[in-house]
């Protein structure tokens, strides 16, 4: 464990807590993409299949349970909670996210480190996580007025993978044979997808005005 990875995990944890806080306290998921939340639930479900077979540390297992629990409970809130589900703008959140799942699965079947069931699904979860934010970014462009909590959620979610890139650089420099191109490229693509959001987020923060994404 290094400071970059810890910062990344804490930023990631903060992003899900911000979202759960928003949904649980104000009983609203306006501006939140259910498609992105469903993709993230799939990402964690396929990433953490080894939770029962291998144990690294209390921290590792605890964080996996938190990410699994939070992502599935957010999907449950947005689909089935009587008050929250009414605030979900179904008409705007129309990204065909299943068109993201299939290519990621095919790519994982083609490009992976080992051709085993767990490894292919783990690789699939890496590719899917890289693009899982797309429905949310599209929804933000459409709804335009972004409330603070949703903006913070996307900002933290984008930031965590950025910290992970620093972690991979650190591990590459300190651990021999630490070379994982698949993870690195997927993580880089993921962070780059947030680039324009980050630009407008900082602009709004600097000029102290509401976050507006160009149409």
């Amino acid at each position: 464990m290094n400071i970059f990875r810890l910062a990344g995990d804490m930023t990631h944890l903060a992003s899900v807590l911000v979202l759960l806080l928003k949904i649980h306290t104000i009983k609203s998921c306006a501006g939140v993409s259910l498609k992105t939340q469903e993709l993230y639930a799939i990402v964690f479900a396929t990433r953490y299949l080894d939770i029962f077979t291998s144990f690294y540390s209390i921290y590792n297992t605890l964080m996996k349970l938190i990410f699994l629990g939070s992502s599935f409970s957010i999907v449950w809130y947005m689909r089935y909670h009587k008050t929250v589900r009414r605030t979900y703008d179904r008409e705007q959140d129309t990204f065909r996210h299943w068109f993201l799942v299939l290519p990621c699965l095919l790519l994982a079947l083609l490009i992976h480190e080992k051709f085993t069931f767990l490894e292919v699904l783990w690789t699939f979860s890496l590719y899917l996580e890289a693009v899982a934010i797309l429905p949310q970014l599209v929804l933000l462009q459409r709804t335009r007025n972004i409330d603070n909590l949703t903006g913070q959620y996307v900002f933290l979610l984008g930031g965590y993978r950025g910290f992970y890139i620093l972690n991979w650089i650190y591990r590459y420099l300190t651990e021999p044979h630490f070379v994982h191109w698949i993870t690195w490229i997927a993580g880089l693509v993921q962070t780059l997808l947030y680039a324009d959001f980050f630009y407008y987020y900082f602009q709004s923060w600097k000029n102290n005005k509401k976050l507006q994404l160009p149409a």
Partner: peptide, 10 residues
């Protein structure tokens, strides 16, 4: 081992 470990990450 010559294989480095990746699965210890979240």
């Amino acid at each position: 081992p010559n294989k480095s470990y990746m699965k210890d990450e979240l």
